[in-house]
Design a protein around this nucleic acid. Structure first.
Lengths: 155, 155
DNA sequence: GTTGAAACTCACGGTCC
DNA sequence: GGACCGTGAGTTTCAAC
């Protein structure tokens, strides 16, 4: 029970699609005034539902054209080995995301490389030398599509 | 060969962490004026490196506390079966990201659910009934950490 | 809950060094 | 490249309904 009405959901959908829209414009789209729209946006921010704004950086435009997803299974699991692995993996600059997961693997990593041979270097020198690394599985990304997600499932 | 200097990289790092910072504020942080900082930001936008602004929506605050990563292998692969699968999977509201990948799986999905039993419903009713689905592997996310990525690897 | 209007800040452009 | 200075637009707050 988040206490959100249809207007709040409509505002969230608009902002999720394009964060540059102004409060006045959003208000017009959902049928309320600029001030009312702004207050709702502030409330969404204060409630933690809107958890910040980020720019989208095009890694390919920066010369990093290869994205690889890596499933990592640790050889030995323990409290210390998880901490140790996380500390070491977050220090690798090519690692963009670290996800601690449950299932066949213990961690999922999103890795950015300039090209495939650059990725091989990262895998051999950086990843395979991490403390406690066991089985590793790689998937090279061809394309990615983001969808509205839960905002589409609500209302 | 992007023609970026240290100041551009510093601006990118600041914006990647928090897109609400103003040009004047950023300029102060990197040692240039408001107008110069703004001109650099516009250039980064025009060159495609800054590819948009997004709000971060906290799914847990919306009542969707479970995130699952799903590797999907298609039973039969062909141009039509890829198109057909993508069309069907993007229509599922709980699917937040669709990644076409190369490797053990053909697709990686990021799925948002209210809880584990909600995820089971999505898996049985929505995912397993998709056209051409073969092997499926799930990983439940415990925690996620985003890192600077390539911005940390440059300069 | 709403509107309307202040005051302030910012984005954006022009101009000159 | 850089700083400096306008202008119009957007944000944020406040008073009133």
């Amino acid at each position: 029970m988040s206490g959100l009405d249809q207007t709040d959901l409509a505002i969230l959908r608009i902002l999720a699609a394009d964060a540059t829209r102004s409060a006045a414009e959003i208000g017009r789209s959902v049928g309320i005034g600029q001030s009312a729209a702004w207050r709702r946006i502030r409330k969404l921010r204060e409630s933690g539902i809107l958890a910040g704004r980020r720019v989208v950086v095009d890694n390919a435009a920066l010369g990093f054209g290869v994205t690889v997803f890596l499933g990592v299974r640790l050889a030995a699991k323990g409290r210390t080995s998880l901490d140790e692995f996380e500390r070491a993996v977050t220090a690798i600059p090519e690692v963009q995301t670290v996800q601690h997961v449950l299932g066949q693997f213990d961690y999922r990593l999103r890795i950015i490389a300039r090209d495939i041979s650059d990725f091989e270097r990262i895998l051999r020198r950086r990843i395979m030398t991490l403390p406690g690394v066991g089985q590793v599985e790689a998937n090279v990304m061809l394309s990615e599509e983001r969808l509205p997600g839960p905002l589409g499932a609500l209302g």
